[in-house]
Design a protein around this nucleic acid. Structure first.
Lengths: 212, 212
DNA sequence: CGAATTATTGAAACATGTCAAGGATCGTGG
DNA sequence: CCACGATCCTTGACATGTTTCAATAATTCG
C-alpha cells in the first residue's frame, strides 16, 4: 500500500549523505506501510533510495525459507546500490517508512556519491561479517543494540522499529534466542525493556565489553 | 620476507579486472612468502593491490584472539580498498604470492575502476553474509568449495592453497568441524581428497544442492 | 473487548565447539 | 635419500550454545 506524499525537505535534519542530494534528482517521498515491498529480487536496478523516516530491511530468502537480512536502513541512509542490472536482494519497509527515490542524473559528482555509498555499504557488510562469523548470541545482540543506538543518535533509549524475528534474521539467530538474550541482559541489569520495542541501555560499558 | 621480482605481464591470462590496469600505474611484482603481512590494521590506505599469483587473506582478530577472514583473493583479483584513511583489516599472503601495487593515477577512469572494485567487494561480502548467517557447516563448506572452484576456473579439481584453519576462520567454524565435514563429504562420495590440499568435486550437483 | 500477532519461557534435540590423542605431511639437515 | 622435528590434519569423547517444538503471556489491531 503506497501513498504519495509531498513534503520534500524533512531530511534536512539528517546528514546529507555524501552530498548525494545535491546531484541526484530527488523525487517526492513515498510512504510505505509496514511490511511493503520496495523492490523485489530480480527487479532491474538503476536508482537509489533514501530513507526519509522509518526503517527498511534488505533481505534474501533461501529455497527452504531461511531469511537473511543483510542490512537495516534508518532515516537519512541510502540503499539500493547493486553491482549489476538485477537486484540480488529485496527491500521492504519494516515499519511505516517514507522513501525518496534518487534518480541518477548523469554526472561526475553523482558517481562520486555512488562510490561513497558503495564504500559505506562495503564497510558495514565487512563489520557484519565479523559479527556473524565469530560472535556468540550475546555478543551479536550487544553489537546490534550499540549499532542501532549509534545510528539513531540515541544515548540511552533505543527504539527498535523491527520485531524480534527481524533482529534474529539479521544476526543469524532464532527469534527465541534473541528474546532469551534480551531477557538475560535485562536480568543482569545491563539493559531495561520499558516496552517491547524500547531498550534502555543501562550499562553501555558492559555492552561494549560484551560486543568485544 | 619480500623479494622484488621483475616480470610484469604474467597476469595477462586473467581478466583485466575492470580495466584497472589501463589506468593505474602498476609496479613490479613483489613476492610474499607464505604468511607474510602485506599491510596491517591501522596502516594508511591509498593504494590497491592485485594478486599476480598465489592467495591473499583479508583478516581481523578480536581482542580475545578469534579471527575472521573476510575474504580470500586469488590470481587476477584486486584488494585493498577501504572506506577511509585507515585500514580496518590486515592482509596476508596465504601461500607464496606475487602482488602488484596499483598506485592511483589521478583520473576519472581510475575512479571508475575503483567503483567497480567496491561493487564487486560489496557483492561478495553480501553473499558471504548469507552463508555465515543462515547456513550450517555442510552448506558453508559446499558453498566454499564451489566458490573456489569457480574462481579458479576449475571443473573438478580444486586446489586449496589455504589450510583448514583458514577455511574455518572464513566460514565461522572450528577447523575440526571443517575437517569433519570434508571427511563426511568424502564418505558420501560427493568429493574425493587425493591430497590434503586438493579436493576433487565428484558430484558437483550434490554440492550445489547442499549449498542451497 | 476479542482475535490475531508477537514475545517470552521451558524442555529436549541437535549441531558445533573444545579438549585431547594419534596420524599425516612438510621441510630440513645429516 | 632418510630421519627427525614441527606443523597440520583427522578423529574421538564430551561440553556447550543454539535450535526446535510447545505452551503461555503480552501486545496490537479492529
Amino acid at each position: 500500500m503506497l501513498i504519495q506524499t509531498k513534503f520534500r525537505n524533512s531530511s534536512a535534519r539528517f546528514a546529507d549523505n555524501d552530498g548525494i542530494l545535491a546531484f541526484a534528482q530527488p523525487s517526492a517521498v513515498t510512504l510505505y506501510e509496514a511490511g511493503t515491498t520496495i523492490y523485489g529480487q530480480g527487479d532491474p536496478t538503476g536508482q537509489l533510495y533514501m530513507v526519509e523516516f522509518g526503517t527498511v530491511r534488505l533481505c534474501r530468502v533461501s529455497a527452504d525459507g531461511r531469511r537473511q537480512i543483510s542490512a537495516f536502513y534508518f532515516a537519512g541512509e541510502i540503499f539500493g546500490l547493486e553491482a549489476d542490472q538485477q537486484r540480488h536482494f529485496y527491500a521492504e519497509s519494516v515499519d511505516s517508512a517514507g522513501i525518496r527515490v534518487l534518480r541518477p542524473s548523469q554526472g561526475d559528482k553523482f558517481n562520486q556519491s555512488m562510490f561513497q555509498v558503495a564504500l559505506k555499504g562495503l564497510t558495514r557488510a565487512q563489520e557484519h561479517l565479523m559479527v556473524l562469523g565469530r560472535q556468540n548470541g550475546t555478543e551479536k545482540v550487544a553489537a546490534f543494540l550499540l549499532d542501532v543506538a549509534d545510528r539513531q543518535g540515541a544515548d540511552r533509549l533505543v527504539e527498535l522499529s523491527m520485531q524480534r524475528c527481524d533482529i534474529a534474521d539479521y544476526l543469524g539467530l532464532s527469534f527465541e534466542t534473541v528474546s532469551r538474550i534480551l531477557t538475560k541482559l535485562k536480568c543482569a541489569g545491563t539493559i531495561r525493556i520499558p516496552h517491547v520495542k524500547q531498550i534502555e541501555l543501562v550499562d553501555r560499558g558492559e555492552l561494549e565489553y560484551l560486543r568485544g
